[in-house]
């Protein structure tokens, strides 16, 4: 992880850490923007949804995560936390849902 952590990064990281706290994962690197949800954290689809719901609850607004998690009608195979953080930042900046 490089540079200071933004508020958005901290929010997502803390939600992720809360979700995985009792999974017994042995992480080689600390959770950061490069962390992959499936490959690194062993997320199942329901965990991705749980993360999305928690983010929406935190910001008290819908984010339209289907635009991030689906491409051409298929679910993306994996997602870096940085991609999610950028998506959330953009939604918050332009006020779009």
């Amino acid at each position: 992880m490089s540079g200071a952590e933004s508020v958005g990064e901290r929010v997502v990281r803390e939600i992720v850490e809360d979700l995985i706290q009792d999974w017994g994962l042995d992480l080689e690197e600390p959770i950061g923007r490069e962390t992959l949800l499936v490959a690194d954290l062993d997320f199942a689809s329901v965990d991705v949804i749980q993360l999305c719901v928690a983010v929406e609850e935190h910001y008290e607004r819908k984010m339209g995560f289907q635009d991030l998690l689906m491409h051409d009608g298929s679910y993306v195979e994996d997602l870096a936390l940085g991609e999610m953080i950028e998506f959330i930042s953009k939604k918050l900046e332009d006020g779009s849902v």
Partner: peptide, 14 residues
Amino acid sequence: NPLSGGCSARTANQ
């Protein structure tokens, strides 16, 4: 199941 490439290892294990 077209969900997340069949299913994740954790879903399969579950």
